[in-house]
């Protein structure tokens, strides 16, 4: 049973068509890596999955709920889909602990003590329990991104979306974030990762996709994708990036 189904999703920004009919499915527990040149619509697509962007045609069904203008459905999907952004987007005016507990307390309506316990557990899993009472501005980029992952996990999502989680980081910090993501993948989380880290894709992904010009060009297992790409576009892309 696939947890995400997308059928012929189309999206325009004014004159520009960002998505030209994307159809795909993601199974539960699967790790999907999406790569492609910038402006190819990959970010737009995963932002459509938790309705940060609104698709205009086609349908997206997440965990059996279709994404429409229905208020309840949007709320339901957002609490089941966690998202990690390229630029972390931590809330700078509150501490790391408050960042992580904010959603459980206010959205899930859990008690403070319970949420803090859970948050501490998550921060430990991310390897940064000692930073709990600092402000985001006092942390390094890698640490901030791990806090962002912990914040998303605090909602106990079924699916995690990663929007280029490592591209705003210094090279030495990329590894710590990727390691944290690997741990997640090993725990069986459903993940869609937009990234240029081909090493991560080879090692962790169950499937790799290439987006170009608003369309899905190629979809394959990592081995086939990297070793025997079907399309010329993929070959070109791989030659540029590797």
């Amino acid at each position: 049973m696939s947890i995400i189904q997308a059928k012929d999703v189309k999206k325009w920004f004014g004159d520009f068509q960002a998505l030209k009919g994307i159809s795909m499915e993601v199974a539960e527990g699967e790790v999907l890596v999406i790569c492609g040149p910038s402006g190819s619509g990959k970010s737009t697509f995963i932002r459509c999955i938790n309705r940060l962007e609104q698709h205009q045609e086609g349908e997206i069904i997440v965990d059996g709920i279709e994404l429409t203008n229905d208020l309840k459905n949007i709320e339901a999907i957002r609490s089941e889909v966690g998202m990690v952004f390229q630029s972390f987007n931590l809330f700078p005016h509150i501490t790391v602990m408050q960042n992580v507990t904010l959603a459980p307390i206010w959205v899930r309506k859990k008690s403070r003590s319970e949420s803090e316990e859970k948050a501490m557990e998550l921060l430990e899993r991310m390897g940064i329990p000692e930073q709990a009472n600092k402000y985001p501005g006092q942390l390094s980029g890698g640490q901030q991104q791990r806090v962002a992952i912990a914040r998303a996990l605090a909602m106990e999502p079924k699916i995690m979306l990663f929007d280029e989680p490592t591209s705003a980081l210094d090279p030495e910090m990329i590894k710590e974030v990727l390691d944290a993501m690997k741990v997640l993948a090993e725990d069986g989380m459903t993940m869609i990762v937009v990234t240029h880290e081909m090493g991560f894709a080879k090692e962790v992904a169950d499937r790799v996709m290439l987006f170009d010009d608003g369309q899905m060009v190629e979809e394959n297992t990592p081995e086939l994708f990297f070793d025997k790409p079907k399309h010329d576009r993929t070959k070109l892309f791989l030659s540029q990036i590797l």
Partner: peptide
């Protein structure tokens, strides 16, 4: 629009509420 064809309770429709 395909979404519009589906039945939606009006008080749950984001656009309507807006």
């Amino acid at each position: 629009m395909k979404n519009a064809t589906k039945y939606l309770l009006f008080f749950r429709n984001v656009v309507f509420l807006k």
